[in-house]
Write a protein that binds this DNA or RNA. Structure first.
Lengths: 225, 225
DNA sequence: CGTTCGTCACGAACAGTGTACGTCACGGAC
DNA sequence: GTCCGTGACGTACACTGTTCGTGACGAACG
């Protein structure tokens, strides 16, 4: 062994190309935001960094790994709450709303998050925070754990739905209403009759409504017990 | 115009190759079940039908259209309920369970269903049936409509989760438990403390629990109103 | 019966994709 | 001044989805 620290690379400051995992992920996220998930290809990301596709494989283990890294970075940007038992319900809505927004801001990430549920540090901290708020609200641990799971489902579902709606701007409600209302009432009596209710509310309204429903259900079951 | 009906094809029974949309979708679903979604490529499906990839484009508008057709076919196989107000809650569980199973039986279809929410006849009939059961349970139309949406989220989420768990058989609970329990308790006090609760219950148990929670929440809100 | 014609399936080709390998230049260490 | 490891690059491969032109088959018409 050499007495001097030799673990450091011989080239601490690559004078020419400042390539790094962060740079790769940044470039990929930029392309994701501006051109969508399908445009995030290895060659495209490499071109944005003025290099070749092969160079990315040093910092990222393939496209799959790149997507995971992007997903992790996105989750890491979500601001957490410091649990306060007197405002726990509002805090829950705030946290979930920020999760929702972070996913919506990066179209396609929500779908990726479903495909491989994240167990990275950022995701675990988020889970920790979510649990803390629910426990501060008085839920018993088992209910809190399962509730956290349900909320994760609702957030990602809402985010994916928002992604889709942005993709084809057409069916922004009116289109969907006319589709429902214009169906043959013989075969679809309820869908046609309640078309207005089916398309009622914005995505955010439905999202927060769902959160409250789950919470009330949890509390009702706890009270009954 | 010719007096005789000329709209019919000159070749009603292609004696040699019995190719059709159904045949294509059948072959694709078979590959999906046995080898997963990624193996469903145009060439692979065509090879199973002993033909070339180009031939598929007559019956299916590209890969996207093929996936839509597969998704529609899958939904169409779900058996519906004839609503009975005295057993509506059990009927809801049964219907959602069948939806869940149908999606799980075809890995990847759930993810596709999220990407483009289906508005085909089969999907609408399912929506109609779901609404009928909820209305039979006494929910008012607006609550029923939004509840249907939440249930759709839960079903697809659970299905995707099941797909993932099957893909990497490793983390079947024990692995996940050890991951949670083995974290540094300083940074993750709640996750480590309640690791058992976080991984408790099978997928089915959590699924049906979530359904009941949402229902109870709906009923509690309705009663309070 | 011979010809024509429409329909369908096929082979080949194109533009991309993710990924692996061999090579080259650079900058610090001896 | 020489050496050598490190990181970036160009190329190549095996794929992908999709399109186009060709060819053959069977039925309809004269």
């Amino acid at each position: 062994m050499n007495p001097t620290s030799r673990h450091r690379s011989t080239r601490d400051r690559p004078a020419k190309a400042p390539l790094s995992q962060d740079a790769v992920v940044d470039a990929a996220l930029a392309i994701l935001k501006s051109e969508g998930l399908e445009a995030v290809t290895m060659r495209r990301v490499a071109a944005a960094l003025d290099t070749g596709a092969a160079s990315l494989y040093v910092y990222v283990s393939g496209r799959e790994g790149l997507l995971r890294a992007m997903q992790d970075r996105t989750i890491a940007t979500i601001e957490l709450e410091t649990p306060d038992p007197s405002r726990w319900r509002a805090q829950l809505h705030s946290l979930l709303e920020r999760m929702h927004r972070a996913l919506v801001a990066h179209p396609g990430i929500a779908a990726t998050a479903m495909a491989n549920p994240p167990t990275t540090e950022a995701a675990l901290l988020l889970q920790e925070n979510l649990l803390a708020i629910l426990l501060a609200g008085g839920l018993d641990p088992q209910d809190a754990a399962w509730a956290a799971d349900i909320f994760a489902a609702l957030v990602t579902y809402a985010a994916i739905e928002a992604d889709v709606r942005r993709a084809d701007r057409q069916e922004l409600g009116d289109e969907l209403y006319e589709l429902f209302a214009g169906l043959p009432p013989g075969r679809f009596p309820l869908v046609t009759a309640h078309a207005a209710q089916l398309v009622a509310g914005s995505g955010d309204e439905r999202f927060h409504f769902a959160i409250d429903v789950v919470l009330d259900g949890m509390l009702a079951r706890a009270a009954r017990r």
